[in-house]
């Protein structure tokens, strides 16, 4: 069963320079209880996808079309008041930068307790206990004292643990983690990834890892959605993505250095496209080594190629001898 189904979602930003099509007709679904990787470079629409699902797209952005079904319910027609019942309680989000997403003026106990008091209608003493319990879940050392400390008193890794605890306070079913380890050192990153894996397993949550690191995806995720310039390039189980990838994914995998081997790096020419005036047809065509005339002219559709693998490419079948 799918916990979330996104269909033909369009989120545009109406800027002075023009309309930025941050998400242009994207569709994907997330199986319940799984870990899904949402992969892409900056500007591909990873973060906007999470913001759209929670309906917290910042101005001048607006969801202009499509639907988002959470456990069968369409979230887009819901009123603001109704959305509050979803945010944090059913769908939650860990922000990219733990330093800027914690309020420096309040203690950890105050800012986390506030959420519990507001949403769960608990008494103060109960709220305190609940916060300590959740901080323990995120393996923050000495939570009884930590609730009296301010964010600046913690290191980056510890702040991220606090942010994870905050996202878990209301026991959400679906958790988006937006680049949760990008600002952390590798050894701390390993600690946070281990924690997220444990939490997903123990709490039976559905976890969406938003990342640009294919290594993290390979390590954590069962399913992958690859985004590029506001379009879904491919969706599939992790093995398929690595074995028979979309030309973009293939190019990306060849362009990243690997620690376990030395190889000739094959770089992707050109730059990430400008979304105000995106390329015609397939958005990756100007940088794609396999691009032909048709890629320039026609937008490819997301095609089912079996085993739950969907690819948006005119030439994939031909390139993989499946034609």
């Amino acid at each position: 069963m799918n916990i979330l189904e996104v269909e033909k979602l369009k989120t545009y930003f109406f800027t002075e320079a023009g309309v930025v099509k941050a998400l242009d007709d994207i569709s994907f679904s997330i199986p319940k209880g799984s870990t899904l990787g949402l992969v892409g470079e900056s500007g591909s629409g990873k973060t906007v996808t999470a913001q759209s699902v929670l309906r917290i797209v910042p101005k001048p952005g607006k969801i202009v079309g499509g639907s988002i079904f959470f456990e069968g319910e369409d979230l887009l027609p819901k009123k603001e008041g109704e959305m509050r019942k979803f945010r944090g309680k059913k769908i939650s989000l860990i922000f990219q930068d733990p330093t800027s997403s914690l309020n420096p003026l309040f203690t950890i106990g105050e800012q986390l307790g506030d959420i519990v008091v507001q949403h769960m209608k608990l008494k103060k003493s109960e709220a305190k206990e609940w916060v300590i319990k959740t901080l323990k879940l995120a393996k923050l050392p000495d939570p009884e004292n930590a609730i009296h400390s301010y964010p600046h008193q913690f290191s980056g890794g510890m702040k991220q643990r606090i942010c994870i605890a905050r996202a878990l306070l209301l026991s959400p079913k679906l958790l988006f983690a937006d680049e949760p380890t990008t600002n952390l050192d590798v050894t701390i990153q390993a600690q946070i990834i281990a924690l997220l894996k444990d939490l997903q397993r123990d709490l039976g949550m559905t976890l969406v890892m938003i990342t640009h690191d294919m290594g993290i995806v390979a390590d954590m995720c069962k399913w992958v959605v690859v985004l590029y310039a506001g379009n879904v390039m491919e969706i599939g189980p992790i093995d398929k993505i690595f074995e028979e990838p979309h030309p973009y994914t293939e190019a990306l995998l060849k362009a990243i250095p690997r620690l376990d081997q030395t190889k000739e790096l094959v770089f992707i020419p050109g730059n990430i496209p400008n979304l105000i005036d995106p390329p015609s047809g397939c958005k990756f065509h100007p940088r794609c080594q396999y691009a032909k005339e048709i890629c320039k002219e026609k937008i490819p559709s997301l095609e089912d190629i079996g085993d739950g693998h969907f690819v948006s490419c005119h030439r994939w079948k031909e390139l993989n001898n499946r034609g």
């Binding site: 050894t187 690191d213 390979a218 093995d239 690595f242």
Partner: peptide, 25 residues
């Protein structure tokens, strides 16, 4: 060794064998 083990490798077939370091620098 811990540092090298902590780097995620983009290959789903490879099992990561991370040496988790306790605490922080």
């Amino acid at each position: 060794r811990a540092l090298i083990s902590a780097v995620p490798i983009p290959d789903p077939k490879r099992k990561m064998n991370i040496i988790l370091l306790p605490g922080e620098v």
